[in-house]
């Protein structure tokens, strides 16, 4: 409550830290405050890492595909890690068109050979994720717009990919990504 009148006369300097330069006890106080800081920082570790993918999301799941029914000129969409994968059985014309390009002129120089497996250069497996900002390009399903280069076309901001799924025009910086996969038989591929 409000002080009585006597207070002013007796105002001692209780508890006012002495300003006289170095205090011997400073060290322990700084150490204690630093320890609190270290503890606080340590708390950030779980709080930050809980937002990273959890164990079930990370658990590598492989996708197995049977492509025996995939005719020349057709594509199928599969799912790998919750994202689309395009598998296209290239026609000789498409292969020729891809090989005809001067690799040096490409934004992301790669040959069709490099982007397919030996012995299966007519099977093109790419992630269906535009390298610009992640939309799913068109061209894998029957009747979809394949873009100016006959491969894939991303309608979001107009990226055109050629028959080897290489970026040819538009804002995307890279070719559509080829995931790791292998042929376990002539007609079975395992992605991941």
């Amino acid at each position: 409550m409000a002080s009585t009148g006597t207070a002013d006369a007796h105002s001692e300097e209780v508890g006012v830290a002495s300003e006289d330069g170095v205090r011997r006890r400073d060290f322990i106080e700084i150490a204690a405050v630093s320890a609190a800081g270290v503890g606080g920082l340590a708390c950030l570790l779980p709080l930050v890492s809980q937002m990273a993918p959890s164990a079930d999301v990370l658990a590598e799941s492989s996708t197995e595909l049977d492509i025996s029914a995939l005719e020349e000129g057709q594509s199928i969409k599969a799912v790998f890690r919750k994202q689309p994968v395009f598998v296209r059985h290239l026609t000789p014309a498409e292969i020729e068109a891809a090989d005809a390009v001067d690799v040096g002129s490409l934004r992301d120089p790669q040959t069709l050979q490099e982007r397919t497996e030996d012995g299966h250069h007519n099977i093109l497996v790419v992630m269906g994720v535009c390298t610009h900002l992640g939309c799913v390009p068109l061209g894998a399903a029957e009747g979809e717009n394949k873009g100016e280069f006959g491969g894939y076309f991303c309608p979001c901001h107009g990226s055109h990919y050629d028959t080897a799924a290489r970026i040819r025009k538009g804002p995307a910086p890279k070719n559509l990504e080829v995931p790791t996969y292998e042929f376990t038989t002539d007609t079975t591929i395992v992605i991941g």
Binding site: E12, E13, V14, G15, V16, A17, S18, R25, I28, E29, A31, A32, V33, A35, A36, V38, G39, A42
Partner: peptide, 25 residues
Amino acid sequence: GFLLFATILAWFAKKSVWANAKRRE
């Protein structure tokens, strides 16, 4: 272990802070 260490430090820090009050008296 860390908390024990920090708490002991806090104890000494508290003592040192309060020593000021006692000393002025």
